[in-house]
Design a protein around this nucleic acid. Structure first.
Lengths: 213, 213
DNA sequence: CCTTACCTACCTACCGGTAAGTATATTCGC
DNA sequence: GCGAATATACTTACCGGTAGGTAGGTAAGG
């Protein structure tokens, strides 16, 4: 990270450098074990600069979370306009979510540790909202697929949890063992096991290849 | 927590009180955001007592992890002597693991946050070993079930991840939303969706009720 | 002149860990 | 059996360092 020239004009990249430095630090140590001093040093500025731009240590954390939520919201928004069979649409969204996660591993690791783990002094923010939105989206597709004769489902929530579990397990393997991580093809096969479990007779037709973007 | 009488004979319960206090604090705030001072105050002793018994802050954390690993090892050991169809055995172990987790939520929450999240200054310890042992166990049962004609599996790992995903998603819901947590029956049904996805024709016989202990 | 962006120096509080000591129980040597 | 030595379990007071945050100031741009 380059240190800006002393007393030069305002540095347009400070905010971004602080964010990058913060997520790197939070990912390596967790929120509570990261000091503001370390974050600003890596960004090449002084401590009050962080307070100037983000208000507090928690402020910069919230900015990172907001960034992540916005990206996820966009994905969901696009997915609500997608077309195809229920299965295809779910597979497509799962593939895109998995891609997004793979591109944002440090952020995902930090977010998950706050959502499923101890709070460490920061609130969960909007995490509940996006989790529930995702669950609702999947459930809606399952209901549509059942109504269209694609699935035979006794209880929608069961199928939803089985599907989300498949996506989560792939994500978590990426978090704890990047060397053993599943590929997109792997994920689609694991999700495919779940789909096989809910497929109706007509839904058991030979499986299409999952569409990629 | 009762404070021991001043200058009384050695207190036999100090170690346990410290452990209970530590897991409570780690669960509420995470490892790094918990201070030794807070842990010992809640246990009704002074700081050097923790260092006397456990050597360091990390020492008491490791003692907690060891406890958890031991419990899990016992479960796996017992499960390797269980009998029944592959599916029954997997369902039984999953039910017992889920029960153990439900009885140890604070510990599970802390362990997961270290395993899947940023390290926070403590090593992962034996977590890899138990995760891999569990995966191996499930995989073995799947192979047995396939060889016995119970399952029709293209790739064992896919089915394993789908099953473990189902167990994990139930566990994680417990961690982040105890108010919405799945019951044992819920879990068995979610796992059942996965089993439906790998069942062979004969394996599609009407499902037995999962045995409870 | 005002606003924006940043700096140096500092604040209070607290961190993990330790030194030196005390109290009690047990063991050892006589 | 008795006193000294040792082991165990705990205390008060302290160490050096650092945590998040702030006061007061300067420089550049509009």
């Amino acid at each position: 990270m380059n240190k800006p020239p002393e007393k030069a004009p305002p540095d347009p990249g400070v905010r971004e450098r602080l964010l990058a430095s913060a997520i790197d630090c939070f990912d390596r140590k967790g929120y509570a074990a990261c000091s503001v001093r370390e974050i600003v040093e890596a960004a090449g500025v002084t401590k009050p600069v962080l307070y100037y731009h983000y208000g507090s240590k928690e402020g910069i954390f919230n900015a990172l979370m907001r960034q992540a939520m916005d990206q996820f919201d966009e994905l969901l928004e696009r997915a609500s306009h997608s077309e195809g069979s229920a299965r295809d649409r779910i597979e497509k969204l799962f593939g895109e979510v998995f891609d997004l996660f793979k591109r944002s591993i440090p952020l995902v690791r930090v977010m998950n540790s706050i959502y499923y783990g101890p709070p460490q002094g920061v609130p969960r923010g909007d995490a509940d909202r996006v989790h529930f939105a995702f669950q609702e989206w999947v459930k809606k597709r399952l209901v549509e697929g059942r109504n269209a004769g694609e699935f035979k489902i006794a209880k929608t929530e069961d199928a939803m949890w089985a599907l989300i579990g498949a996506l989560n397990v792939a994500t978590e393997l990426e978090l704890c063992h990047p060397d053993l991580a599943l590929t997109q093809k792997d994920l689609q096969r694991v999700v495919g096991v779940v789909f096989d479990g809910i497929a109706s007779e007509e839904g058991r037709a030979p499986r299409r290849a999952a569409k990629r973007r």
